[in-house]
C-alpha cells in the first residue's frame, strides 16, 4: 500500500534513481505538449491557445480522481501524503507575483527548463531571472519573514476549509474543468489564428 517510500516498502536508496526517471517523464511530457514555447503558453491568457489550461486541468483531474480512487480501494493512505501547508499571507503574495511572472515571462520554472533544452534564449533568461529572484528573496528575508510565516493554518486541505467531502470537491472540480474545456473551445473557434 502506498505511498511506497514513505512506508519503507521501497528502499530510500532508490529515491534518486526514481527522481531521475520521474523527471525524464515529466520533462518529456512538458516538451511534447508544447510547453517549450512561451507564446504557446501565454496563449491561455489571450484566447489563441488553451494548451496550458487543457494539459494542466486534465492532469489535476486525473491525479485527483486517481488519488480518491486509490484511497477508496485501500491502495494508498492519503493521511501519509504531503499536504502543502497554508500560510495565508504568503500564499496570496506568492500567487499574485507568480501571476505577474507568468504574463511577463511566458514561462514557469519547469517549462522554462524545457525551453532552454531546445534552444530558446528567452527561456534561459527567464531561468536566470528565477535564480536572481530566489537570491533577492533570500537577501531580504529578514524583512519579509512576517509575510512568509503570516496567517499560518498548518497542512489544511481545501475540503476542510470549505467543509465539504473529498468526493464532492472532486466532483465539482471535474465539472468545472469540463465546463472550462467546452467554454475555451468556443472562444478559440472564434479567434483568428495566431501564427506562432
Amino acid at each position: 500500500m502506498g505511498p511506497l517510500i514513505t512506508q519503507g516498502i521501497i528502499n530510500p536508496e532508490w529515491n534518486f534513481v526514481i527522481a531521475l526517471v520521474i523527471g525524464i517523464a515529466f520533462g518529456y511530457i512538458l516538451e511534447a505538449s508544447g510547453f517549450s514555447s512561451s507564446r504557446k503558453i501565454a496563449g491561455v491568457f489571450y484566447g489563441y491557445d488553451f494548451t496550458v489550461l487543457r494539459v494542466f486541468m486534465t492532469a489535476v483531474v486525473v491525479a485527483m480522481v486517481g488519488l480518491v480512487y486509490f484511497n477508496y480501494m485501500g491502495w494508498i493512505d492519503l493521511s501519509l501524503i504531503f499536504i502543502l501547508p497554508t500560510f495565508m499571507k504568503s500564499v496570496i503574495v506568492g500567487g499574485v507575483l507568480m501571476g505577474f511572472g507568468f504574463v511577463l515571462g511566458g514561462y514557469c520554472p519547469g517549462t522554462s527548463f524545457t525551453g532552454i533544452v531546445i534552444g530558446k534564449l528567452d527561456a534561459l533568461f527567464f531561468t536566470g531571472g528565477l535564480l536572481i529572484g530566489v537570491f533577492i528573496f533570500s537577501s531580504i528575508f529578514p524583512w519579509i519573514e512576517a509575510i512568509y510565516y503570516g496567517g499560518e493554518m498548518g497542512a489544511v486541505t481545501v475540503t476542510e476549509a470549505l467543509g465539504i467531502s473529498r468526493g464532492l470537491f472532486t466532483f465539482l472540480f471535474v465539472i468545472a474543468s469540463l465546463l472550462a474545456f467546452i467554454f475555451t473551445s468556443l472562444i478559440q473557434s472564434k479567434q483568428k489564428k495566431t501564427d506562432l
Binding site: 507568480m98 515571462g105 511566458g106 536566470g128 530566489v134 533570500s138
Partner: peptide, 15 residues
C-alpha cells in the same frame, strides 16, 4: 522574460 523570471522566483518562495 528576465523580469518574469524574477517575479516567478520571488513568488515561488512565498508560495
Amino acid at each position: 522574460a528576465s523580469l518574469g523570471g524574477v517575479f516567478f522566483g520571488v513568488g515561488s518562495q512565498f508560495g
